[in-house]
């Protein structure tokens, strides 16, 4: 046997061993995923996508929707993304050019969780308004007089997170309206000038094609950031901003 042939066989066997071990590892993960999905004591969210981050985020929303359905059956309140993200377990595989992300939790744990965003919502201070026409968020929260130097109230995580996940104004408009009706936000306004936006309001910058340029944290925040990127930002960076919508 020539040394060239011998080398080729060795390379082939090493490649094949490596390939076959990855195929078997893949099969193991697939098997584990199937076991989780068939187990009626587990709840899961799943997604397939070429981008692993998109697959993860969509699996998370799928898990959230499903677990909230299961909780509603037992009379438990709805959870938010921030309630489940730290505790959801993950299995991930890659085949046929896309990622398969499975996020799962035991049903008993799902039913035992308490909503962190819910408690934040209940402790949300009432809004202040120089015009005096603000609407109180919930019946449990007394209105407080306005002061020009109000420190912005913490928003329920899910409001900001939901808005940050939208691409255009049409989508955000629907959510804002819904959040307002549910008392998650108290006041919204439209302006063409950043100076007119209240200091404790979140600012949504919109371009002339109804795309979202940025969602800025309130002007009164110690560090003003773009809430979608978590980087410092301000209105002056967007010369193509056509309309400003704010909420608080």
């Amino acid at each position: 046997m020539s040394s060239r042939l011998f080398k080729t066989i060795i390379i082939a066997l090493v490649s094949a061993a490596s390939l076959s071990s990855s195929v078997y590892a893949q099969a193991d993960i697939d098997k584990k995923m199937d076991e989780v999905k068939l187990n009626e004591n587990m709840v899961f969210g799943e997604d397939f996508n070429e981008d692993k981050d998109i697959a993860y985020n969509k699996a998370l929303l799928d898990l959230l929707n499903y677990m909230n359905e299961r909780r509603a059956e037992k009379g438990c309140g709805a959870l938010g993304v921030s309630d489940i993200q730290p505790v959801a377990q993950e299995l991930k595989s890659f085949s046929n050019n896309r990622y398969n992300v499975l996020l799962y939790m035991p049903l008993s744990q799902v039913l035992a969780l308490t909503a962190r965003s819910h408690s934040e919502q209940m402790s949300l201070p009432a809004p202040s308004s120089s015009s005096g026409n603000a609407v109180a968020g919930t019946a449990h929260v007394p209105a407080v007089p306005s002061t020009p130097t109000t420190i912005p109230a913490p928003m329920p995580d899910d409001v900001l997170e939901t808005l940050c996940n939208q691409d255009n104004w049409t989508e955000i408009k629907g959510f804002l309206s819904s959040f307002k009706k549910r008392g998650l936000i108290n006041e919204t306004g439209v302006s063409t000038s950043a100076a007119e936006v209240p200091g404790d309001a979140y600012t949504i910058l919109i371009d002339d094609m109804y795309g979202i340029l940025s969602i800025l944290s309130p002007k009164n925040s110690p560090n003003r950031i773009n809430c979608r990127t978590n980087k410092p930002d301000s209105e002056t960076n967007y010369s193509n901003c056509k309309v400003i919508v704010w909420y608080r």
């Binding site: 929303l61 909230n68 509603a72």
Partner: peptide, 19 residues
Amino acid sequence: LQEDVSRILFSPGGVADTR
């Protein structure tokens, strides 16, 4: 566009709204 799907199904209006 599966991104659209998750946006539709992510409901701010509760379980009945999700269905």
